[in-house]
Computed example of a mutant assay.
Amino acid sequence: MHLRSAAATTALLLASALTLTGCSSSGDTKADAAPAKPKPPAASPAPDPADATTPPATADPNAKPTGPVLPDAQLTPKTGSFKANEKQYLSGRVPNKTDPAAVLQTGQETCQRVERTAKHDKDAAAAAIASGELTGARDAITYLCPDQKPILATAERGFPDGSSKDPASGIYRAVTQSTTCTWEAKDTDGIALAWGPDAPPKPGDRITAAIPAGTATFTSTNCYAWLPA
């Protein structure tokens, strides 16, 4: 009995040692580490994903629901009353069994974000809307903070980084300080009509794009958003 007990103890110790060795080697392997996420351009109002403390939302909190909504007659807060413009914003936007005040707060927070950003940098506020980073701004501004309509008008004449179909011809500026921002305009046959910048930009350079008439696709990389110059 004594020999069997000693053998069992020895086997257990060996198994534990192998397990610890395996854990140590995998923890020291650099190849197993997740790659770091790239940071957004320095002047971009986009948040740095590396600084996020909570996972990004998977749904647009400003989007109108696709299911049943509260009838306009039932759009009443638990206390007090809504203003006429607030009811206009809430119409068709409040899902059944949802507090209308909570939905209204989402729109008000969107307005507050536009107002705070515009106070320091109007281009950054318009670019946040044009890029798609700030969603729901159109309805929020229209009904809840109409004094920000000039910001919305500028944003709606712009477009986000990436590929845009049939852009209006004209001069546009990239709202970024990225030195890797590039762009190209092509016609319907995929032939390049214009591209840029002509020389590698330096930090602080203003990057512009002249989109000629007949452009079918405008494609840019690392430019965040484009606004009319």
Rank of each mutant, 00 (worst) to 15 (best):
L193G: 00
A128P: 02
G107E: 04
D147S: 14
D161L: 10
G92K: 12
S163P: 00
G204E: 08
E86P: 04
A7S: 04
P41I: 07
A6S: 08
S25K: 13
P160K: 09
D187L: 08
T10H: 09
K122L: 08
S26H: 09
D51T: 12
P212D: 04
W226G: 00
E115R: 14
A6M: 11
S25P: 00
S131Y: 05
A126T: 05
V94L: 05
T58E: 08
L3I: 13
T154C: 15
D123R: 12
Y172Q: 02
P200F: 10
K39F: 04
K186F: 01
G67C: 13
A101N: 03
W226D: 06
L227W: 03
T221M: 06
A7F: 10
S26Y: 05
L75M: 00
D51M: 09
T179W: 15
L134P: 07
T215Y: 10
T19W: 11
D123W: 08
G204T: 02
A153F: 01
A192C: 03
F159R: 12
L90M: 08
C111E: 10
W183D: 04
Q148F: 00
N62V: 01
T219E: 07
P160T: 09
L144G: 03
P71S: 06
T53E: 08
E133D: 01
P35G: 02
P55Q: 13
T21G: 02
C181H: 10
G196I: 04
I211C: 02
T179C: 03
D72Y: 10
K202I: 00
G136L: 14
C223P: 02
L227M: 05
A194K: 12
P65W: 10
M1Q: 09
A125M: 09
L90E: 02
A128I: 04
N96I: 05
D60M: 09
L20A: 13
D123A: 13
T117Q: 15
K122E: 04
T154V: 12
M1C: 08
P56M: 13
V175Y: 11
T219S: 04
P55R: 14
P40F: 15
G136P: 07
C181N: 04
P197G: 09
A140C: 01
T19V: 05
K87A: 00
C111V: 06
A52T: 02
P56F: 13
D123Y: 11
T217Q: 09
A199E: 07
